[in-house]
Write a protein that binds this DNA or RNA. Structure first.
Lengths: 203, 203
DNA sequence: AACTGTAGTAATCGACTGATAACATGTCAA
DNA sequence: TTGACATGTTATCAGTCGATTACTACAGTT
């Protein structure tokens, strides 16, 4: 008399399920880009059926919009949490906060990928707003000058690129690879290497 | 006795046709991302049938690889051409060379998009190599220090983001939008605005 | 003029994907 | 208990997309 394994996902309040799916979706979208991921992959990652994902969020696009908004909101929260303390260390603390987001699957890739989607009518608006909010935060709440903000954002974009390129394995032949990583994460290369995905990993 | 309009594209040597398709593909891939564009769109943009594109390049992936390689090669050539002259103006001249690539459809978006595809087994390798080559060029040929190179590349990535986000229209309500554009293109905002695609344009 | 390789197309296929519809099961208030 | 809503599934469809096949027409050589 064997117990049948549950054919359906364990019951859960819709709000919780949404959050769980958003988390899974962030990871998958981050790993395979917006157009490149299917709603079915998101569903599997969340342990749920594909139609249910669609029903909870309406369309794939709406799901992705929520993923982006959630990512930027999370980023903003981390930056804000890094503010308290001596003023001269603010930028460094914010930088650390950013790299620590690496531990959260898909968070950084989603943000990075959003900067290439300005042409999408709906998603583009959301991405622009997210980016602008970060910029405004740096200027107004963190009190950075325009030039400081520019440098801060530029560094963030460089980190995005290095992570997105998976410029992190030991490409022994690639002379510049390690130097690039060094330059981007001057004091925490070891920690970064641990967090960063390998070139062949789906992440 | 009406003349039949040619049902087939005017005959051309394969090498020329390849170059023509590569150019069209750069524009389309740049506007709609790698996964987001169909071989049929590329074919239409090049005035040729879809199967012919596939036959000339083997697969969509191989086509895209050539597009990326061509873009980085072009970028490298422009940077190299900007070297001659007083040493103190090098970085500025290289920066100008970069922004002038904006005039070439898809060139910048393709490069920007490539930095998010490190996870793709084939394309990732190509993108990493392209990025590394630019870095090496800055270090060895342009003679920049590691820190100068970091700043230079970071600025480039920020420009990519601003362009990719289409952070360029007159978003009257978005306070930060114009400031961001100002910060990224301090001395040539007007020129940039003319070159940059609008948010709703397919480019 | 006939031959041969090159440039190009139309037709079509199999696989995939987002979305819809119809149905099943658990939960909870009255 | 029962009914009503919330949670979740299976089955399926219509549209897309990359790729293959088989065909046509042009151009240069001998």
């Amino acid at each position: 008399m064997t117990v049948e394994s549950a054919p359906t996902a364990p019951r859960m309040k819709a709000a919780d399920r949404r959050e769980l799916i958003l988390q899974a979706a962030t990871a998958v979208f981050g790993a395979k880009t917006y157009v490149g991921t299917t709603t079915d992959e998101v569903a599997r990652a969340a342990g749920v059926s594909q139609p249910y994902v669609v029903r909870l969020f309406g369309t794939k696009e709406k799901l992705f919009v929520e993923v982006i908004e959630r990512a930027y909101a999370r980023l903003l929260a981390e930056f804000r949490a890094a503010l308290p303390g001596p003023v001269e260390g603010r930028v460094e603390r914010m930088g650390t906060a950013y790299t620590e987001l690496l531990a959260e699957r898909g968070m950084l890739p989603v943000i990075a990928g959003s900067t290439t989607l300005g042409g999408e009518p709906v998603i583009g608006r959301v991405a622009r707003r997210g980016f602008s909010e970060i910029w405004s935060f740096a200027r107004e709440e963190a009190g950075l000058s325009e030039e400081e903000t520019r440098r801060f954002m530029a560094t963030g974009m460089l980190i995005n690129a290095v992570v997105g390129l998976r410029l992190t394995g030991d490409y022994g032949d690639e002379l510049s690879a390690t130097e690039i990583l060094d330059a981007c994460f001057p004091d925490s290369v070891a920690k970064m290497r641990a967090l960063l995905p390998r070139a062949d990993e789906p992440w």
